[in-house]
Design a protein around this nucleic acid. Structure first.
Lengths: 228, 228
DNA sequence: GTAAACACGTATCAACGATAACACGCCATC
DNA sequence: GATGGCGTGTTATCGTTGATACGTGTTTAC
């Protein structure tokens, strides 16, 4: 499949160089030195071509992000992830708009992968007891906020001339999903178990047997973490 | 200017009824009973037509919002503004996507007007000393977050099947721009449940069945505390 | 050696955005 | 009252675009 990558590269170049973010299959085929039927046999559709282009452009960004080593504090990863996301959007505005601003019927891959990487970082935060909501919901919030800001920066630069809004919004959103407590690196689970064991007698949502078994399990977590 | 409003109404209907969010000037003219040159003399361009359609669709929403009486607490206005914004986006997905997801060169007035109304509410909050940043910056943050969420709900409904993410994100974003006047509502037990649920996949001290049941119970605690 | 499978280009279609050229009704001006 | 400008509409047409039918050359299997 040599022609496929050729078409993909030329299409990506034309998309990056276009003023409106729209490209024609004819121009792509002419740049790639092939006829139109070749393109349609490989990608089936113009939308199929655009989806493949978006996936390719995003892939280099996502592989770079995957390769990045997790730092000691997941909060740093969360912040740098936001900054990288925003920088990528500004560097590839058309590809970004195709992924986050239009409804391509066949592009779940890049978006799902980005969300997966984000959720990983958030789960590390949750393990430390610093997340005030489930990682999935926090991920949706961060992703929606980040993409909303990036689209605003791309599509309305005159209304958002100041790029410093990005770290400001980043820290605001991150603050809103975190607890106010300091990080508890290792003992978070044990502390959480203690907290819940103290809470159990005051709730009515469990039967006596459930409560008893839950208390046993929480105790098991607690002793696992050597908190006495 | 009777034909202008006729064309505008027919175009809005066709846009609302279209599957892809795209309409052709030919179809609009045929529905309005006029020739194409009429459309082009009035709106100059297809983009001019789309901008006018977006402005018209948004106008009914904005006038409704303008007419709404300011409540005693600007925080209530801010919350209802978020909810109305989201509801409008879901009710008019194509017009919304045209305004917040594409780069119409002839900028619709609607975006600036929506931002102005939002800033008014935020200025009332600032007067009460409850805003931790200038109203303009807070407005950009809230607008970017709200539009990002709305676009995600419109364009990726399968990834965001739960509409309850909207009030969750609303309160998170609002909390992040306000001064810390209110404590975390539910506090320790809910956070402890979240922490332990994130910890469960990484421990070996439970069997698969134990882990599954424990996760269910922790979820029950979490929802009982309704962290939002 | 022959036929089937495959890949590619030529020519073409239907739909689209946009425009030139012209036709009609209205109103102020002389 | 004739006339010229002006707003408003039509018909016919151009160039471009997404998409495809069809023929041709090449490779592969037996």
């Amino acid at each position: 499949m040599f022609t496929r990558s050729t078409i993909l590269n030329r299409a990506a170049e034309l998309l990056a160089g276009s003023a409106t973010g729209d490209i024609s299959t004819r121009a792509v085929c002419e740049a790639a030195g092939v006829g139109q039927p070749v393109l349609y046999r490989i990608f089936g559709d113009k939308e199929g071509l655009l989806s493949a282009v978006v996936d390719q452009v995003w892939d280099e960004y996502l592989t770079m992000k995957r390769r990045a080593v997790a730092s000691a504090d997941p909060l740093d990863d969360l912040r740098s992830g936001w900054d990288n996301h925003t920088a990528f959007a500004l560097a590839h505005p058309h590809a970004y708009r195709l992924l986050f601003g239009t409804s391509l019927t066949t592009v779940p891959e890049a978006a799902a992968e980005a969300m997966r990487l984000l959720t990983e970082v958030l789960e590390r935060l949750a393990e430390q007891g610093r997340l005030r909501m489930p990682p999935q919901e926090a991920g949706r919030i961060v992703m929606a906020a980040n993409s909303g800001l990036a689209l605003a920066l791309i599509l309305r630069p005159q209304a958002n001339p100041d790029l410093s809004i990005s770290p400001l919004m980043r820290d605001s959103v991150i603050r809103s999903i975190l607890t106010d407590t300091e990080p508890v690196p290792s003992g978070a689970s044990g502390v959480a178990a203690i907290t819940l064991r103290a809470y159990l007698p005051h709730t009515e949502i469990f039967t006596l047997r459930e409560r008893g078994l839950l208390d046993e399990w929480l105790e098991r977590i607690q002793t696992e973490h050597d908190i006495s």
